[in-house]
Design a protein around this nucleic acid. Structure first.
Lengths: 206, 206
DNA sequence: TAGATTGTTAATCGATTAACAATC
DNA sequence: TAGATTGTTAATCGATTAACAATC
């Protein structure tokens, strides 16, 4: 199977969520590309192409088997791998992510939260005790953590990323509005929320 | 000026943030497309094309005037328009957004927060008192609110969106992981955070 | 069989990158 | 002037959509 591109992966996630969570799919055993496309506002051909890319075959006149599709997506997106992650920056956004227990459904669990602010260290957030960033490197190394979630102020993000990478972190989910510089082997996924503001503001302009 | 596409708008926002917030730009009066491209990891031609699209002219051998670029982007992205927004769903993510005061820098201000949960109504979050969603429609109508931020559980998002649109909301910043169905005249900007998980999980797979 | 749906190729569309003359 | 940088056209690349024979 060829390496899948980002947009394909995102669509696979959307298909999966639709098939597992939408009330429209309650009890259905099969689903057509047209149904999925309609619900997610994309082209039916796109759906079939994406399914083809992960070697999923449909049935003429019937569509796709819901369970088979879900199973295949789980495998491709590695939802059963149980990735452990650390979160750095236990501010408002960080706390919101810690509280978002749904991540476990996709195989990701945040096992520790760090902050450098004395007022936050020791506090309990969503069942975890916020630790001092002094303990970050030893923890990541000892637990062989591969994924880090960055909800730090932008001034410190690059420095924190460097430290994480030096002890083996392979992927960073970056919520701070900074462009991180990392080695090619490390994946950075940026969630720059404020970019949305540009589109909204432009559109609302008189 | 032709209608700008989403990716262009997002890049304009990144240019603006780089020019106004990066320490690399401290005190600089001019900037070259190569400098910006290097910092944001994009192609220099892209930067010049984007600037060209908003009628910004550079100077041969010197580059672009930083102030002029910033001013132009502010105008194009309407940062001085002072858009008022309501937020619906004062949970963890909603509270994080309410606390994120930086939005005002880009002309957006959240003036009211609503929730349907009795335990949240009346609580103060980031200087605002959470109101019952019963008051949502009257408030939006009276204050002529055009932008709504949706941080509701996915089951109720469509219903809330319908109500918002019925009283004049023109754009929705959707943080709930649902595909909303809206009239063509309404802009929906989706921030489906969990899509990132697909890419990260796929990449970390052994 | 008849008809709905798939799987796949070809056509279109849009975004990115390369090349280079024009400019200051 | 010489040289760095722009502005723009052309080439490339990738993603989306249309078309349609194959299938169940």
């Amino acid at each position: 199977m060829a390496r899948l591109r980002r947009l394909v992966l995102e669509r696979l996630m959307r298909y999966y969520r639709f098939l597992t969570e939408s009330s429209a799919m309650k009890g259905a055993e099969t689903v057509t590309s047209a149904q999925i496309a309609e619900a997610l506002d994309i082209d039916p051909t796109q759906v079939r192409k994406d399914f083809g890319a992960i070697d999923l075959l449909g049935m003429g006149r019937v569509g796709f088997d819901v369970c088979e599709v879900c199973r295949s997506i789980r495998v491709v997106l590695a939802f059963d791998d149980h990735i452990e992650a650390v979160l750095i920056g236990a501010g408002h956004l960080g706390s919101a992510l810690l509280a978002y227990k749904n991540f476990e459904r996709y195989g990701m669990r945040i096992t520790a939260a760090f902050d450098s602010d004395k007022r936050r260290i020791g506090q309990r957030v969503a069942g975890l005790t916020v630790q001092s960033t002094r303990g970050l490197k030893p923890y990541v190394k000892k637990q062989r953590i591969r994924l880090a979630i960055l909800t730090t102020p932008m001034e410190v993000s690059q420095a924190v990323a460097d430290r994480l990478i030096s002890v083996g972190v392979e992927a960073i989910w970056n919520f701070s509005p900074t462009q991180l510089t990392v080695p090619d082997s490390v994946l950075v996924r940026n969630e720059h929320i404020s970019l949305g503001l540009a589109e909204l503001s432009y559109h609302l302009q008189r």
